[in-house]
Structure formats: C-alpha cells, structure tokens
Computed example of a mutant assay.
Amino acid sequence: MAGSGEHIKALVRSHASGDEDSFYAVASQIAARAARQGHNRLASDLKRTIDASRRAPVATKGSVTSLAQPRGDLADLVTASYPSVGLRDLVGPSPLLGQVHRVIAEQRQRHRLQERGFAPAHRLLLEGPPGTGKTLTASVLAHELSLPLLTVRLESLLSKFLGETASKLRTVFDAVESQRAVYLFDEFDALGGDRSGNDVGEARRILNSFLVFLENTGPESLVVAATNHRAILDRALFRRFDLVITYGLPDHEHATAVMQARLGPLAKHVDWQLVIELVDGLSHAELVQAAETAAKQALMRDDEHVTAADLVDALRVRQTASRA
C-alpha cells in the first residue's frame, strides 16, 4: 500500500469530522507518495479519482459523514448507529432467514436488477411479539450491507413536533433518497395504527403522508417498519411494503440455538434436555437474557462452562418475570 499508516489515520479522522478539504489534501499526499515510489499507475488513478470526486455534485458528497453525525432537523428525528451483529447472530426458522437473505442478496445486486427494470426489496414490514428479533434484523441488514442504521424517533415525530409531523416525515424521507442507509421506524403502530374511528384529523394526515412518501422511495435505502401489533395497523399499509416478515416465539429447536449462539464455548457441556421445557413462551430477547445470566453465574464462580442448572435457574427467573 502506497500510503503510510499515518496517512490512513489522517484520512479517517478528516472523513469522520467532515473536513472535506483535509480529506482531499491527505489523499493527494498519498498520490504524490505513490508517484515518488514509482507506482505511477496507482498515482495516476488516485489523482483522477480525487479530481472526479471534487467535481461531483454536492448532494453525492459527504453522505457517510452526514449519516454518522445527522445534522439540522434530521438530528432531532433519528439516532445513528453502526451495528456489529451479522447473519450469524440471527436465529430463526428457515423461511424467515430465507427472506432476510433474499433482501440482502437483492440489495447487493440492486444495480444489476435495476438495469433490467426490477427494483430490489427495500420497503420492509417486520411484525411479531416483542423481543422476537425485529430490531435485530434491522441491525443485521445494516451490518451485512455496510450501512448505518438510522432509527427514527417516532416519539419526537408524534409529540415534540405535533402539528409539524408531516413536514418532519418529509425531512426523513428526503434523507432516505439522498443518504443510503437502513431507516428503522420502530414501534411503527404508533404511526401506522388504524385511524378509522373518531381520530381522523392530524393522525390521518400523518398516515397519508407516510404512505405517499413510502410509495415514492427509491431502492438505494431500506425503510424498515417494525410493529408488535399487526392487528391494529391500517390495512392500506400492507400493500405499500415489498415484503412483510412475520416473527414468532422460538420453538424448542430455535430456543436452544439462540442460547447456544449467545453462550458460545461456555455451553459446551450443557445437557439441553434438562433445560428445554423451560423455554416455552419466552422470546428471543428473554432467552438471550437468561443465557447471559447463566454465563455470569458460571464465570463468577470461576467455571469455564455453564451447567444445565445455571440455565434452569435463569430461565425460571425469566418465566416468573414474564408472567408478572
């Protein structure tokens, strides 16, 4: 690599801070260093890339920096994160995992699909009980596609900006079009609930605005809506999504897989037959919490392996809490 470690660190720092001039200055230094070392083709390619990027329209520049640090109105509406969980962390039935794999595959080949007149799946509705992996799926999509996850603050949209919600939604969807990312509308029923009763004023206008914005989104970003209450969603919503993925409580096989995935080598000697009857009714999140509790108990007594008894105790606590 022609650039030194210091050059690379300087590039990252200038990119993260949004200092475009410094970024290009460091890139030019790398090109010059490549030329001095006799890497003439690399130096020439770098210079052409730098010149072309400087001439690019402003709207295409700095999008990653903007996503890392949302500014202006967008900063009040979204929270940015860069998830580290991948497909290996997502446990579920084969049909559900197949749908997630499909979305990732279509996004990775979106340009090829678009060249032939097809749009990749990019508007997703995730529905199912709390703690079953909906938010985790959004994180997995972001990680696997190397995109930021922008979680929309629905409480701000619906309370802080009461009376301005439709215009704030436009701000979010403008970002959807200009800045590639995964945009998560969590607890979406707060926005998309059926308003066919007496509440037909501002709430209806908000929902109608969302439907229009959603239908007009392009395939560069993913819009993911997650809800615990499919039954109360306005029926007009479902046909606007490219894919509806349904989540449920894990069966015995998947419950075991969830705990094994979280425990890793710590679960090497667990007799799962002694544990399995206690997983009924527990969500993905509750099983992870039980596994973590068992792991901490084992580690605090200086044991390198979790026992079935550790998991039984932890699962009983979760069962009691879930019934409270």
Rank of each mutant, 00 (worst) to 15 (best):
H269A: 08
Y24S: 11
E187T: 07
L97P: 03
L147H: 09
L233Q: 10
Q114A: 12
P219H: 00
Y24P: 15
G72W: 05
V212A: 12
T135G: 13
L299F: 04
L113N: 02
S81P: 07
V270N: 03
H229T: 02
A309R: 12
R262A: 12
L87T: 15
L274V: 11
A291F: 14
A27Q: 09
I30N: 01
S22E: 11
S146F: 09
A105V: 07
S196C: 04
V182N: 05
V270G: 03
F118A: 05
P148G: 05
H7P: 04
D303G: 11
S209R: 09
S84H: 14
R235T: 11
A59L: 15
A225G: 08
L136T: 01
S283Y: 04
G163Q: 07
A309D: 15
A25V: 09
K268T: 13
V212I: 15
A181M: 01
T171Y: 00
S159L: 11
G131N: 09
L211P: 13
Y183F: 07
Q99W: 03
P93V: 06
L169V: 10
A43T: 13
V224N: 00
L249R: 04
E20I: 12
A295T: 09
S139V: 05
E127T: 15
D174I: 04
S28Y: 09
P120H: 05
P219G: 01
R54Y: 08
L149Q: 03
L243N: 02
V317H: 06
G201I: 10
G86N: 10
F238Y: 02
Q114G: 10
D19S: 08
L184H: 00
V58G: 08
V26Y: 07
T165N: 04
G248L: 08
L42Y: 10
G281S: 12
S283P: 06
A309F: 07
R262K: 08
R54N: 04
N208D: 10
G117K: 06
Q297F: 07
R48M: 13
H122R: 08
D271Q: 12
L149C: 01
S156R: 12
D21C: 00
G72V: 07
K47C: 00
T60M: 14
T65Q: 15
D242L: 05
F238T: 00
L126S: 03
G192K: 00
H284G: 08
L77K: 11
D89R: 13
G3W: 09
